[in-house]
Structures are given as C-alpha cells and as structure tokens.
Simulated scan of single mutants.
Amino acid sequence: MRRILTLILSLSYSSLLFANVPTITISSGTYSEKSLLYPIEKYIFKSYSRLGYRVNIIELSVGRSIKMAENGEIDALMIKAEEVANSLNNLIKVPILLLEGEFMLYCQAHVDCDFSVLNDPEIIVGVLSGVNLPTQYLSTKSASMYQISKGSQLAEVFKKKRIDYILTFEIDGINVFDFNLANDIQKLPIKKVKGYHLVHKKHQKLIPEIKASIEQTIKELGPISDNIERYFNENTSVQ
C-alpha cells in the first residue's frame, strides 16, 4: 500500500512539475525531409529548451502559419525572409542571422528564362501561397501566380513539368524545398535573402534571451550552414 501511495504521489508531483513548464509553439512550415531547412529545427528546439520551455513544433502551411502567428495563436515562426518579417505587424525578428540564401526563378529547359517573362501576363509562375517573398515579389509583376501550400508540392509539380516556372530559394546552389530539384532546368538569380526567426510581440521581452540562446546553440553545434551541408551530403550519398 505504501509503495502504491508513493508511486501515486511521485506521478502527481511529476505531472505538476510538467504542467508548470511553459510551452512555446513554433511553426516549422511544411518542409519535407528533402528540405535544406529541416536541420534548423534542432537549433531552435535546443535554444528554447535551454531557456526552460517545452517546445511544440507544428507543421502548417505558409499562409496559415503567418495568420495564426499574427493572431498570437502560435508563438513563433521557425525562419522567414527579412522582407516578410518587415511586412508583418505583430511578429518581431530575433536579431541574429540564421541563414543567407538566394531568391531564384526556376525555368524549364525549353522556355525563355529572363526577367521579361515575369512581366508577361500569359506566363504562370508557381509560388508558395500566403504572405511570403515570392507572392510579394510577383504581386508587382504582370505574370500570374499559381499558388501551392507546400514547398515539397511546389517542387514536385515543377519536377513533373506541370508548370514551366516557379519562384523558389537556394542555399549554396541547392534548392531549399527539395535537394533533388536540379536536373535539366534553367535558373535566374533574383536577389540575396536573409532568414530570421520570428516571435510574436507578446514575447518581445524574451528576445534578448532567445538571441543569446540561439548564439550559444550555434557555438555548440556549429554554423547552421555547415549542418545543412552535412545533412545534404548524408542524404544524397545514400540515394
């Protein structure tokens, strides 16, 4: 009887401790395991865990994640382009650069691939749906948007040649959504982009702590770009 009582008290105490641990909910986007952004999760997870948070990482489409984050329904976005961060009202970027990449136009091999196609109203360009750099950029052009909710789906549609153009991102020459997306295509660099972690303004006072913890994680694990390169090499060498 004493053992049972001790077990009950122990479980109750553990549950109480767990219940008192604050939770932070972060949208990672809808990146597949073929995405170069996939390794970023462990940096963000470790950084918040060090601060005493229970980390809840959820997958949401770009559009839904930004809407929920702006409304305060989730606490943070894993990584977003600086241009997107500057356009949002209720989300604040943590002032430490996570990644640098390239904003790109991908074109099928048989079509024209220059800036003029983006001002051709007969051209359809695939983009991720929601508030993001591709939709912001294309809204100033004459070409039409074909919006898709997931980066992996956007890459797949392009690989199957169901669409001739997509706006996407690269890190060191590798597509961020699908690192197999590189064969028999044309590429047009548009601009350099910088990626930052975003938090809702209700957590504004925590930003110095979050920044310091991310810096510590980078010191421990090495630069994010190095881990991405390692992840790419490991996952392409076994194919």
Results as ranks from 00 to 15, higher is better:
P22I: 01
L128F: 01
I92W: 08
E73N: 09
T30Q: 08
I228Y: 05
Y196W: 11
F115S: 13
L77S: 00
Y53Q: 10
T236H: 07
Y165D: 00
Y38L: 00
I8A: 13
A155P: 05
D114N: 15
E215M: 13
L105D: 01
I174F: 14
D226N: 10
K211P: 05
V199Q: 04
I148Y: 02
R3S: 11
E170H: 12
L181N: 06
Q186N: 14
V238K: 15
S237T: 08
K141S: 12
I44W: 05
I218A: 04
V111T: 10
I74H: 07
D226I: 06
M145N: 02
Q108V: 02
I174K: 15
V157S: 08
Q186H: 11
K161D: 07
A109V: 00
L154Y: 07
R2V: 14
V111K: 14
C107F: 12
M1P: 09
I207L: 06
N71L: 15
K42I: 14
Q186P: 04
S61N: 11
L105P: 02
Q204M: 12
K93D: 03
S61E: 12
L118K: 06
E234Y: 11
P121Q: 09
G101Q: 02
M68Y: 15
Y137T: 05
L99P: 07
A109H: 08
L167Q: 00
I190Q: 07
L181R: 03
I58E: 02
F179M: 12
M104K: 09
I92P: 06
D75Y: 07
L36Y: 01
K93L: 09
I163T: 10
T23A: 14
Q216L: 11
N56Y: 01
E70I: 08
K46Q: 15
D164R: 05
R3H: 09
S10I: 15
A76C: 06
Y196P: 05
S10C: 12
T23K: 15
S15Q: 14
S27D: 03
L77T: 00
A212R: 15
L154F: 04
N175T: 03
Q204S: 05
